[in-house]
Measured scan of single mutants.
Amino acid sequence: SPEVQIAILTEQINNLNEHLRVHKKDHHSRRGLLKMVGKRRRLLAYLRNKDVARYREIVEKLG
């Protein structure tokens, strides 16, 4: 489901952010981070168009 995919991506994004705080010059990982953020944004847009209630619920849960 989109909610699960968004939750997994959010966790991976948070982990990668911590990694990049330590390894500032790791541009390869930064590119992966940007791809993940874009994918999460697309999934959220899809969910917002399909079911606003589910969209609001996941945004509330994940912050």
Results as ranks from 00 to 15, higher is better:
residue 18 E to I: 08
residue 37 V to L: 13
residue 37 V to G: 01
residue 36 M to K: 07
residue 40 R to T: 03
residue 60 E to H: 08
residue 17 N to P: 01
residue 45 A to P: 15
residue 52 V to D: 08
residue 30 R to S: 06
residue 38 G to V: 14
residue 20 L to E: 01
residue 43 L to Y: 03
residue 25 K to G: 13
residue 22 V to F: 09
residue 4 V to I: 10
residue 60 E to A: 13
residue 8 I to V: 07
residue 19 H to G: 02
residue 23 H to R: 04
residue 17 N to R: 15
residue 48 R to G: 02
residue 27 H to Y: 11
residue 26 D to S: 06
residue 2 P to I: 15
residue 7 A to V: 10
residue 34 L to Y: 09
residue 29 S to G: 09
residue 51 D to I: 05
residue 29 S to H: 13
residue 4 V to P: 03
residue 27 H to T: 07
residue 55 Y to S: 02
residue 50 K to G: 04
residue 38 G to S: 12
residue 18 E to D: 09
residue 25 K to T: 12
residue 40 R to L: 14
residue 8 I to L: 11
residue 33 L to Q: 02
residue 49 N to K: 15
residue 12 Q to C: 13
residue 52 V to K: 13
residue 32 G to Y: 14
residue 21 R to H: 04
residue 38 G to F: 10
residue 58 I to M: 06
residue 13 I to M: 01
residue 39 K to V: 10
residue 15 N to A: 13
residue 14 N to G: 04
residue 41 R to F: 10
residue 1 S to R: 07
residue 17 N to F: 14
residue 54 R to T: 05
residue 8 I to Y: 11
residue 35 K to D: 13
residue 37 V to Q: 08
residue 30 R to F: 10
residue 51 D to V: 02
residue 15 N to M: 13
residue 10 T to Q: 03
residue 60 E to W: 04
residue 27 H to G: 08
residue 13 I to F: 02
residue 7 A to I: 15
residue 57 E to W: 05
residue 56 R to F: 12
residue 1 S to D: 12
residue 25 K to A: 11
residue 6 I to G: 00
residue 34 L to M: 11
residue 60 E to C: 11
residue 26 D to C: 08
residue 24 K to Y: 08
residue 32 G to E: 15
residue 5 Q to L: 15
residue 41 R to T: 07
residue 8 I to G: 03
residue 60 E to Q: 12
residue 38 G to D: 13
residue 19 H to Y: 14
residue 29 S to T: 08
residue 47 L to T: 00
residue 60 E to I: 10
residue 12 Q to W: 12
residue 42 R to Q: 10
residue 18 E to L: 10
residue 44 L to Y: 01
residue 29 S to P: 03
residue 41 R to L: 11
residue 21 R to K: 12
residue 3 E to D: 05
residue 13 I to G: 01
residue 62 L to E: 02
residue 47 L to W: 03
residue 16 L to H: 03
residue 25 K to M: 11
residue 14 N to M: 10
residue 37 V to W: 09
residue 16 L to R: 03
residue 9 L to T: 01
residue 9 L to C: 02
residue 46 Y to G: 06
residue 40 R to D: 00
residue 33 L to R: 04
residue 55 Y to P: 01
residue 60 E to T: 08
residue 13 I to P: 00
residue 17 N to W: 15
residue 9 L to Y: 02
residue 38 G to N: 13
residue 26 D to A: 05
residue 53 A to D: 15
residue 19 H to C: 08
residue 55 Y to M: 03
residue 43 L to N: 00
residue 28 H to E: 12
residue 12 Q to P: 01
residue 14 N to C: 10
residue 52 V to S: 10
residue 13 I to A: 00
residue 62 L to V: 04
residue 10 T to V: 09
residue 57 E to G: 03
residue 25 K to Y: 10
residue 56 R to K: 11
residue 28 H to P: 06
residue 3 E to H: 03
residue 25 K to C: 14
residue 19 H to P: 00
residue 30 R to T: 06
residue 33 L to E: 01
residue 48 R to A: 07
residue 47 L to R: 00
residue 45 A to D: 12
residue 55 Y to E: 02
residue 54 R to K: 13
residue 15 N to V: 12
residue 62 L to M: 09
residue 20 L to N: 02
residue 24 K to L: 08
residue 59 V to C: 14
residue 51 D to C: 05
residue 59 V to P: 00
residue 16 L to W: 08
residue 31 R to P: 03
residue 56 R to P: 02
residue 21 R to A: 07
residue 2 P to W: 14
residue 49 N to R: 12
residue 59 V to R: 03
residue 2 P to V: 15
residue 17 N to V: 15
residue 11 E to Y: 05
residue 39 K to T: 07
residue 61 K to M: 13
residue 58 I to S: 01
residue 37 V to E: 08
residue 23 H to I: 03
residue 58 I to Y: 04
residue 7 A to T: 07
residue 29 S to Y: 06
residue 52 V to I: 13
residue 52 V to A: 12
residue 5 Q to K: 07
residue 61 K to W: 15
residue 45 A to Y: 05
residue 32 G to I: 15
residue 12 Q to V: 08
residue 26 D to M: 04
residue 56 R to D: 10
residue 4 V to C: 14
residue 4 V to W: 12
residue 38 G to H: 13
residue 2 P to T: 12
residue 8 I to K: 11
residue 40 R to V: 14
residue 61 K to D: 04
residue 39 K to I: 12
residue 24 K to C: 14
residue 16 L to T: 03
residue 32 G to T: 15
residue 54 R to F: 05
residue 38 G to I: 14
residue 17 N to M: 15
residue 8 I to M: 11
residue 61 K to Q: 09
residue 18 E to M: 09
residue 59 V to L: 13
residue 8 I to E: 08
residue 33 L to P: 00
residue 28 H to A: 14
residue 23 H to Y: 04
residue 10 T to G: 01
residue 56 R to S: 06
residue 57 E to F: 04
residue 25 K to D: 14
residue 28 H to L: 10
